[in-house]
Design a protein around this nucleic acid. Structure first.
Lengths: 155, 155
DNA sequence: GGCTTATAGTTAGCCGAACAACTAAAACGC
DNA sequence: GCGTTTTAGTTGTTCGGCTAACTATAAGCC
């Protein structure tokens, strides 16, 4: 057995002592809040990220969207299909590479931008509401640390 | 046009400047890591939390599980149905309240405990790997702050 | 050229998360 | 007692995330 005994105290209790559980709870709360704020736009959480990427990055391949959002191909295919069905996005085959589809935002998609920008600002505001500047920078630093740690595990 | 220009700097760029995006990315990485570690147990992310709650809390009502995990009733119903179908959990009607179902872990479910405990320790280890004690406590504090902020928004 | 490998995208199936609508039973209030 | 409200649980639907399997095309290699 290669498991140290004396450091696994709060592992099974779900008592909130572990960073993993905390990440889990924060993520759930945050996503739920995003979903509520997003309702007035008719979008579902995640779709706004696709649109935001298209707004700032212009027409691009699906694989570029996947890379930007660190998503995966099947999820992107379906997400874009739904955005296309709601008329927010258009898919046209590339002329130079017959494997790729170029995704671009439609008029209707562009029209959603002010609402989504406002929603996103509101989300950010509510997320860090009532915290001091020091606390906020501590949070940013912490999340950055977690992200790079988790990313290095991936590779 | 009613869009303020000068305050939407990192709003549309997805450049990682916002806490919200950081939460999003950390959560995705973390959940994906949990999923990979969990594969050898045959469980899906989330199911291990139900089992852990049952291990530490004993047989209980579904609504208690919902409360412990801050989940919701429909998700719990389906999650438990799947655990039941895989024989890890048993559901018996309460004798005192005919609305409630008592959920308890089976032998097979209990047998998973060492593996899940090990996986959870590993997840926690990988999550905070290479960080100093100071950084870790900063992270715990930050996540706690985010959680209480987001919780207060909910109510 | 022709064979192999890598890349772009799709489809199907599993899962959890969220919302709405529903059934059944308990608790409450008069 | 009886009607109203609350609570426990289920079902249906839509969504994102993930894996696996697949098609089609491009790129690399000999």
């Amino acid at each position: 057995m290669d498991m140290p005994e004396e450091e696994s105290k709060q592992v099974t209790g779900l008592d909130g002592g572990s960073v993993s559980h905390a990440i889990f709870r924060v993520a759930r709360l945050h996503k739920s809040l995003a979903g509520r704020l997003l309702r007035e736009t008719g979008l579902h959480p995640g779709q706004e990220l696709v649109l935001m990427t298209l707004w700032s990055g212009g027409p691009q391949r699906q694989v570029d969207l996947v890379a930007s959002l660190e998503s995966d191909a099947p999820t992107m295919t379906r997400s874009i299909s739904r955005l296309e069905k709601s008329g927010l996005v258009r898919r046209t085959p590339s002329l130079t590479d017959r494997r790729v589809m170029i995704v671009e935002v439609t008029e209707a998609g562009l029209a959603l931008r002010p609402k989504v920008d406002r929603m996103w600002s509101e989300l950010e505001r509510l997320t860090i509401e009532g915290l001091s500047e020091e606390q906020r920078s501590g949070i940013s630093a912490s999340l950055g640390l977690l992200e790079s740690t988790l990313e290095s595990v991936d590779r």
